[in-house]
């Protein structure tokens, strides 16, 4: 059975969500942050763009797609209002984690770390199977 968040974790998650909406509060939805977002540039879907994250988070909708962000901060460089979009995404991910809504991959990684000390477990992929942007 899936683990449930404790009362304390729920409070912590809600506090984080409050912080997220505070960070994103000044967002005017201009979309300038999309300019160099590598994820948007590749997938071309607004929901995984920084403006998409901002709109969803401002509406307190925490989606698994938050984990699609590379945390590269390119959006922050292009936001004319200097909004810390990346910080808000990191906090929102933390809130998801506290609510026990981690992605399957994250759960697996945590389990591997606990059991073997290696995020890939006992059968890490070969060098050439790993890739990085």
């Amino acid at each position: 059975m899936k683990e449930k968040p404790t009362k304390q974790e729920k409070i912590q998650a809600n506090n984080l969500i409050e912080e997220v909406t505070e960070i994103l509060g000044p967002c005017v939805k201009c979309g300038m942050c999309k300019s160099n977002c590598p994820v948007f540039k590749t997938i071309r879907e607004e929901s995984i763009s920084p403006r998409g994250h901002s709109i969803s988070l401002l509406n307190k909708k925490l989606e698994e797609s938050l984990f699609d962000c590379t945390l590269c901060k390119s959006c922050e460089r292009n936001c004319p209002l200097g909004i810390k979009i990346c910080d808000s995404i990191t906090k929102a991910r933390e809130a998801l984690s506290l609510k026990k809504k981690n992605t399957k991959q994250n759960e697996e990684m945590l389990k591997n770390l606990e059991e073997t000390g290696n995020p890939f477990g006992n059968n890490p992929p070969k060098g050439e199977e790993l890739f990085c942007c």
Binding site: K29, G31, E46, G52, I55, K61, E63, S65
Partner: peptide, 9 residues
Amino acid sequence: NLLPYEYDA
């Protein structure tokens, strides 16, 4: 998630 498509600038 349809929210991002319910707005423009």
